[in-house]
Amino acid sequence: MPFDVYLNVAVAGILTGLVYGLMALGLSVIFGVVRVVNFAHGEMMTIAMYLAVVLFSHFHLDPLLMLVPIAAVLFAFGYALQAGLINPFITRPEHSQFLLLVALGLIIVNTLLIVFGPDAQSVQTSYAYDSFQIGLLIVDASKLYAGAAAILFTAALFAFFRLTLVGKAIRACADNYTGALVVGLDVKRLYALTFAVGAACVGAAGCIMTLIIDVTPMLGPTYTLLAFIIVIAGGLGSMPGALVGGILIGLTEAFAGILFTPSAKSMFAFAILVLVLLFRPQGILGKRVA
């Protein structure tokens, strides 16, 4: 295959990978701080995707404009979820939390199935078929906008955690739970905020994702798994790791799609998961835990 095909596939993979990274970032933030594995992560993304689709089909609102409002809706959803449902579970055994979120995921997927039906729905933007040509490179406009939006949102998130007082307080909770309590932080509220921020990430990612793929209710479990693979590959709890993992998986899927068959692309993501778990269990950018 000629070089320019590989180049185009690589760029498309990276752009999709950036959106994957944003989605996985939500999972990573939630796990890194609250220590709860959000097993309804992909399901929450499908909620955001359906919101975007409905807003587009009824009011012709572009998903890119709806990015912040949809992220805000998911933020509220995440806050309520953690404050109402998950906080009592943070001292329970790991599998108990896991099952709570499995139950939630099951409810979300099938409620969406009842409301929207099993058929794929999509957003047909005016730029859906546009592309830019730069030398050998031909980039889909949708993918380029999606990647750019993902970068912007991710940058905002990094700034939140590095620069704001709340962001610093959340990181303090993650570093030392008891210490955070001692200096008088309201850990439960911060946990709820963290879950909300994670949910906003996945909400934004879902909104952007409608530019790239069609949405069906069954997408939820698949993307939950994908988010886990990305986060484990990048390093659980590491924010840059989630981005690196996202790009890695985006690239892998893109190349698997062109070299083999697109429907088998997730097999290669699983292969990466197994390799990482075996040879670098802490993930590419994760810190080794003794």
């Binding site: 009592p88 499995v102 139950a103 099951l106 409810i107 997927v109 099938n110 199935l113 009842i114």
Partner: peptide, 22 residues
């Protein structure tokens, strides 16, 4: 005829049991 209703029901059962009778 709601194809997802059974699974929603499963989810609610699981949720209730995990919360009330772990």
């Amino acid at each position: 005829d709601l194809p997802g209703a059974k699974q929603v029901f499963y989810g609610i059962c699981l949720l209730l049991v995990v919360m009330a009778r772990p």
